[in-house]
């Protein structure tokens, strides 16, 4: 470990990479310092940087191990992995699995959830930052945050047992009156509840708090001088939002929505409980059933005994990992420095 003594003020520029020991030993500036203290410094520094590296390693290892486990099964696969709608792993010697329907159901349910949640989250975030009375805005925000504290299995139960019957009439109305639009025609299920439609509504509720939280934070940071500029021109409250808050907060709102999309793509148990399985392929309707990547893996979890069939599910997990990685990375890039987490 390096022998250097750390004395610079925080925030000052240091060397590029703290865990690489410096090659030229720095002369001791304070010869009287006890050696144990120097060892303490380097041990502590090592532990801290090591933990940082561990996080980076964790992501790399997730990708690596999933890949290692997926490859043998992908080699043994008889179907086209990307275009086949079937996922049959019953016979370990004759695997035939593809992710077409998993991908479609995952994307349909998540995007539908996003379409429902985005406008509501925008409204809630604006309400909390620009409309709610000052003293109430914090407790109100806390209430919305509580939505995120409810476990997903409870959303699943509520979704299928309570919500699904309640919104079935809406589904029926859409199906009857707008059935000529492919999204609302009768899907691959005999019923209209427990569909992607139902699942999407449940997912929308689940991702609402994260989109709201991120947007609210960014909206609240709108510079005062921009708000005052609009007000001094005689802008109404809504016009101030249009001229100052939204231009400033747009990227944060989009980033928050991407984070919400990431959540929806990976949501497991609520989707597994709410969306029914279907024996026939996906028909591009919101009234289809089926499995998402996550719900398929969870549904098969109890049968993870033979390596090859398990590897088939792990390859689905790998695709989900890549998908959420991309979505979350995009969210971070869009947000720039404005959003944390």
């Amino acid at each position: 470990m390096s022998e250097r003594i750390e004395q610079r003020a925080p925030g000052s520029e240091g060397e590029e990479d703290p865990i690489v020991p410096s090659s030229s030993p720095v002369p001791e500036s304070t010869p009287r310092r006890a050696p144990s203290s120097r060892r303490g410094e380097s041990v502590f520094r090592f532990l801290a940087s090591g933990s940082g590296v561990l996080v980076v390693a964790a992501i790399a290892l997730i990708g690596l191990f999933l890949l290692i486990q997926a490859v043998p099964s992908l080699m043994a696969n008889n179907a086209n992995f990307f275009t086949s709608p079937e996922f049959s792993t019953g016979d370990a010697n004759n695997l035939s699995f593809g992710i077409r329907d998993l991908f479609l159901v995952t994307v349909f349910s998540s995007v539908f959830a996003l379409v429902l949640a985005m406008p509501v989250a925008l409204g809630v975030a604006l309400f909390l930052t620009n409309y709610a009375p000052k003293q109430l805005s914090r407790p109100f925000a806390y209430v919305v945050d509580l939505l995120a504290a409810v476990p997903s299995i409870i959303y699943g139960l509520w979704g299928i047992l309570v919500l699904a019957p309640a919104i079935e009439p809406i589904a029926r109305w859409l199906n009857t009156n707008l059935g000529w639009i492919f999204l609302f025609r009768t899907g691959n299920l005999p019923v209209l509840s427990g569909t992607i439609f139902t699942g999407g509504v449940v997912l929308a509720v689940m991702i609402l708090p994260i989109i709201t939280a991120v947007s609210r934070e960014v909206f609240a940071q709108t510079p005062r001088f921009q708000i005052e500029a609009a007000k001094a021109l005689g802008a109404t409250r809504w016009e101030v939002i249009r001229m100052a808050t939204l231009p400033y907060g747009r990227s944060g709102y989009i980033a928050g929505s991407m984070l919400g999309l990431g959540r929806a793509l990976g949501e497991t148990i609520a989707v597994l409980i709410v969306i029914r399985a279907s024996t026939s392929p996906m028909t591009f309707s919101l009234f289809d059933g089926g499995y998402t990547f996550a719900s398929l893996i969870a549904s098969a979890a109890s049968e993870f005994s033979q390596p090859l069939p398990t590897g088939a599910y792990i390859s689905a997990g790998l695709v989900l990992f890549v998908l959420t990685f991309v979505v979350n990375a995009l969210a971070r890039v869009i947000a720039g420095g404005k959003v944390n987490g």
């Binding site: 921009q226 005052e228 021109l233 109404t236 001229m243 231009p247």
Partner: peptide
């Protein structure tokens, strides 16, 4: 208040144009 500000314009200490417009 909105109508008042419509009638009485204001210029601030720090220039504050809408940056993206």
């Amino acid at each position: 208040a909105v109508a008042v500000r419509r009638t009485i314009g204001m210029v601030f200490q720090m220039p504050n144009p809408f940056p993206t417009m």
